[in-house]
Simulated assay, not measured.
Amino acid sequence: MNKRQGEGCPKKYADTSRDVSVKSSSPVLAAFKVFQQELDTRHDKYERLVKLSRDVTIESKRSIFLLHRVTSVPNTEEILKEADLKLDGVRHKIGQIAEELMGEDIYQFHRAYTPGIQEYVEAVSFLHYIRHRRLISLEEINARLVFCSQGAADALSPGSQVLTFHVTPSDYLLGVADLTGELMRMCISSVGNGDIDTPFQLSQFLRQIHDGFSYIGNTGPYEVSKKLHTLRQSLAKVEDACYTLRVRGSEIPKHMLADVFSSRTTLIDPEEGVV
């Protein structure tokens, strides 16, 4: 028996000419336009911060490359002054980051600029160690990150506003962890130029940094635990260089020491750490 026509089908509306379009005056549409503007503004700010962070990273790396020349020149003060000028330019870029973050929750944009800040901490701590033979503190870094908005030269001039950029403790730790790799390279370069005292100073300094990170353990940021392995490798290479200097230093000509250390560091087991 055939089913009757239309049986079992959903009921259809008779009035198909009903206007279902959303009017431009709809409060829902107006609310979503506001959301769109907020998201676009936030995205544009994020992209500007990424670009500024990239500029900070590039200039900081150039400062680090410049500082490595101190092992091969007789007058290191000229190198340090030039590095200071470069880092002043980096701080100017960080001042622009501070302006972008004015009135914002910094942790919403932290991922955009943290690579540049870590590289800056690495560069400024490298310069500080070469000049003072000690680790720069977080407070000393933040003390030089006070700026005037609107490009005012005087913080008390009309229309200007004092801005302060605070390096987070995690960015500071990550920058210091990267510093150990530069100190290891400085150790090898120093030996190649006949300086046999610097490796022993660096070995002691790196051991102190390693002991400090050991106190943090698993309670620190996740990125710190990842870089701790690289820190241990750098310390192992420097201590291996010091061991070779102490045991075989008199047997190896000074102009060949750097080649010997470079070949020995490649033989260190990448999974071997310092306990």
Rank of each mutant, 00 (worst) to 15 (best):
L80G: 00
L80K: 03
L257W: 02
G8W: 00
L206N: 07
L179F: 03
P158Q: 02
I188K: 02
I130F: 10
S203M: 02
I252Y: 06
Y120E: 00
D178G: 06
C187Q: 05
T76A: 08
P169D: 06
D259H: 12
Q118P: 07
V70A: 07
L163N: 10
L52H: 11
T244S: 10
M102E: 12
V22F: 07
I58Q: 08
Y113M: 13
E239T: 04
A30Q: 14
T114K: 05
Y215D: 10
T244I: 15
H68V: 01
H92W: 02
F32A: 14
G249I: 11
S72G: 06
Q37G: 10
L267C: 05
V162K: 12
S53E: 11
I130D: 08
D211I: 09
S125D: 07
R248T: 01
S137V: 03
R131H: 14
Q37C: 07
Q5M: 04
P221M: 15
N218V: 09
G249N: 09
P74V: 12
G273Y: 00
L156T: 14
K51S: 13
I130Q: 10
Q233E: 03
Q161M: 06
M1V: 01
H68Y: 01
K226F: 13
R185Y: 09
R69K: 06
H68W: 01
G159V: 11
E140L: 01
E140K: 05
D19Q: 08
R246W: 04
I58P: 03
S149R: 13
V224C: 05
E271S: 13
K227I: 09
K61P: 04
K23L: 11
V167I: 12
V34S: 14
E223W: 04
T41Y: 08
R207H: 11
A143K: 12
K237S: 15
S17R: 14
S72F: 01
M184H: 13
T164I: 01
V274K: 09
L135C: 10
S203I: 00
K93G: 04
F213E: 06
G175E: 05
S53L: 09
G181E: 12
S263E: 13
D88C: 09
R48P: 02
T164Y: 00
P74Y: 08
R185A: 07
E251K: 15
D154H: 05
H255N: 12
I188D: 01
F205K: 15
A98D: 01
S72C: 02
V224I: 12
V176M: 02
H210D: 10
E122V: 09
I94P: 07
G6Q: 08
K86M: 11
F165E: 01
T244K: 14
D84K: 13
Y46A: 10
D19F: 03
K226C: 11
V34D: 13
R264K: 15
V274H: 08
V238H: 04
E47C: 12
Q96K: 09
D178Y: 04
L235S: 00
G194C: 06
R264P: 03
L138R: 13
G181S: 13
A236C: 05
G220I: 09
D44Q: 14
I209S: 06
